[in-house]
Design a protein around this nucleic acid. Structure first.
Lengths: 225, 225
DNA sequence: ATGGACATGTAATTTGTTACATGATTGC
DNA sequence: GCAATCATGTAACAAATTACATGTCCAT
């Protein structure tokens, strides 16, 4: 059914960041379906702002349409599959621009890092187990980095993708930092395990690859996404 | 009322990470109230795993007690204020240890970075405005770093806090990396604004403090938490 | 006596997830 | 024909937030 009444409210509606993220996806040239949005979010948005469930994307799209921030078009009989493609409206673009300019302050970055939660609880875990989890994380992160590098190549050169490209570059660097942080974490844990008195000769801890940690993680199927 | 029946189930209940985080808070020596837990979470847990709303902490505490993972004690008449202090039980400690050992895999780190979301949407924003937001973020992050440094001092030396200390050290390094990332982001944006041809003489970008950024952020009232 | 920190909680609402249902199209 | 992918959605639920209600204790 058609949206009841696309009320053109003057001030932008107070929406959760997720809604703006979805609208943002729509703000780049072209129209796209919820399905496509989900794939895009999973491959790039995810690295600096998480990827909502597909069902939520559909819900947000409906809301955006009800607000008059997006329009949808059902594919006609000429196209094979039945699909609903969304596009941003002028009102939507204006509201999004107002939000992006930071009038209300979207809040500080929030990090949920389950591995660190476990490290924090390290007094309950066998030291070797803990270190193994950190190593696993390193392998996983390497996979992520490879994925971002791929997405980055994809955006390279295209004029309209300049900012997404910068965001992706940030993500790549962030993952590199994450890798380094994890190595240092490993060193800290080793120091702890070795006892309070650290011997100076306790191997300078070459930051290179540790002893055979298993191969890289899934590069497409998020085993635990 | 007393919990209906602390069923001692053999396998640990499948709980959301938040519940484990709260139980984790309880796993350190001593008993504490929901209020205290909230303050502690805000000052340290927050930096690597977010701080739940106080109402949710109370809710989780009730759930943990119902599961037999925690016990509570209402302050007697000897103590001034009426307060309910919680302590972890042996079953709780066992369940938490099992979770921490990583049997089920708590998932990858999730980052929600509103600033990056805005950078990603940079095509909608005035370049100067965008850069100002990044600068603001740098100032904010410096404040965060100072806070972590404070918390770190607090944990220093105490035997039982070894792992929390390592987590905090990670957080401090993470914030330092965040600072560097933001500087690089600023440089990327400047490069974009300056046109595709970057002049080599475009100021080496002293990484020192920017012009008068306002004081540190709220340390207790989450203005936008 | 007044305001602020301490302290606990309930209710309403929103946000977000998982599981499920359905069906078309493509490639083997 | 069959499996995988495309595509959309609903329903049930879980997680989490905000706003509110209530009261104590402490310092000024």
């Amino acid at each position: 059914m058609a949206a009841p009444l696309p009320i053109p409210s003057p001030e932008p509606a107070p929406l959760p960041p997720t809604a703006w993220a979805v609208l943002g996806l729509l703000s780049f040239p072209g129209e796209r379906t919820g399905y496509e949005l989900k794939k895009w979010a999973s491959s790039s948005l995810r690295h600096f702002y998480w990827s909502p469930a597909i069902s939520q994307i559909y819900a947000e799209l409906r809301r955006l349409e009800a607000l008059g921030y997006a329009t949808s078009r059902r594919s006609g009989p000429e196209e094979p599959r039945a699909r609903r493609a969304y596009a941003i409206t002028d009102a939507g673009r204006a509201a999004l621009a107002a939000w992006a300019a930071g009038g209300h302050d979207a809040g500080p970055p929030v990090l949920k890092h389950p591995l660190l939660l476990r490290v924090w609880l390290g007094h309950l875990t066998e030291p070797a187990r803990l270190r193994a989890m950190v190593s696993e994380h390193i392998a996983y992160t390497r996979g992520e980095l490879a994925e971002v590098a791929g997405a980055l190549e994809h955006a390279e050169g295209v004029e309209a993708w300049a900012h997404p490209q910068i965001a992706l570059r940030w993500s790549a660097r962030h993952l590199e930092a994450e890798l380094e942080l994890a190595e240092e974490l490993l060193a800290d844990l080793a120091r702890l395990d070795g006892g309070p008195d650290v011997r100076a000769d306790a191997r300078p801890k070459a930051s290179g690859a540790g002893p055979g940690h298993p191969g890289q993680p899934p590069d497409d199927a998020p085993t635990h996404g």
